[in-house]
Design a protein around this nucleic acid. Sequence first.
DNA 1: GCCAACGTTGGC
DNA 2: GCCAACGTTGGC
Length: 152
Amino acid sequence: MNYWLFKSEPTSYSIDDLVRDTTMRWDGIRNYQARNMLRDDVKKGDKIIFYHSSCAEPAAVGTAKVARAGYPDFTAWDPSSENPDAKSTPEKPMWFMVDITFSSKFKTQIRLKDMHENPRLADMRLLQKGNRLSIFPILKKHFETLVHLGAQ
DNA sequence: GCCAACGTTGGC
DNA sequence: GCCAACGTTGGC
């Protein structure tokens, strides 16, 4: 069992969209580090912190779980998709995606600035300088701390 | 393999 | 809108 943090811009896809959809495809990732994790490391049943980025109040807003482990991101070879990439083909897929399912929406969202003030979260990758990956692993204690704070 | 130019992310 | 911190591209 691994734990992850997934970033999403709420104007594109928010926790409320996930509440509505229940399950969604996490597609369109076009970064090799993130791709490698989606392909090799994100497993069914893994737990996810859903995080809103690039918005007025960046914050962890809920949890989800992996419904389907990595499989080829077919939006890459669909020219009409939002993130087409002609270098990826059905025969040789270059990009991967996973499916995630809604688990919970936090009673209180945990703002980025609050995370910075919590010593238990100090070593979380989200808070490291220069972090720009859209998904990355976190520790169990990070997940549990965020869930605990979100329930208050 | 090096590195400059460029593009993107994301907090502020 | 600004800017730091990347990642990617492409000439050499």
